[in-house]
């Protein structure tokens, strides 16, 4: 039932992955405008291999978040990403619903 995974599973996975020695980043939806698909507080956990669990948008921008997360794992510096229709990249990795979301990505260290 991965599509119904609750945030519980995600934070536990983040702890478990990190404790296993994997390099891990955590992405959190921190702000939304308009009709955003996932509420503020939604999490995505990513490892340096690009494996991920959870969602921040219901599938629309996860790919881009995973790529950025791998950068964050390397640099160790948190990043805030924004996705939405006003954004040029939105046409490539946009939110079909027309909302805008801001995602905070941080390393678990």
């Amino acid at each position: 039932m991965t599509t119904l995974a609750t945030d519980d599973d995600i934070l536990k996975a983040a702890e478990a992955w990190r404790s296993e020695g994997r390099e891990v980043a955590l992405a959190t939806v921190v702000e939304t405008w308009g009709s955003a698909p996932r509420p503020v507080g939604s999490n995505l956990v990513i490892d340096s291999e690009g494996n991920f669990l959870g969602s921040v948008s219901g599938g629309c921008v996860e790919g881009a978040v995973v790529t950025e997360a791998i950068d964050v794992i390397e640099s160790g510096k948190p990043k805030t990403l924004e996705f939405g229709v006003a954004d040029e990249t939105a046409w490539k990795v946009g939110l079909s619903c027309g909302g805008t979301i801001r995602v905070y990505v941080e390393k678990v260290d």
């Binding site: 934070l11 536990k12 702890e15 990190r18 404790s19 955590l26 390393k107 678990v108």
Partner: peptide, 10 residues
Amino acid sequence: MKLDILKALN
């Protein structure tokens, strides 16, 4: 997030 914080949170 520090692993310690994540552990305490969980």
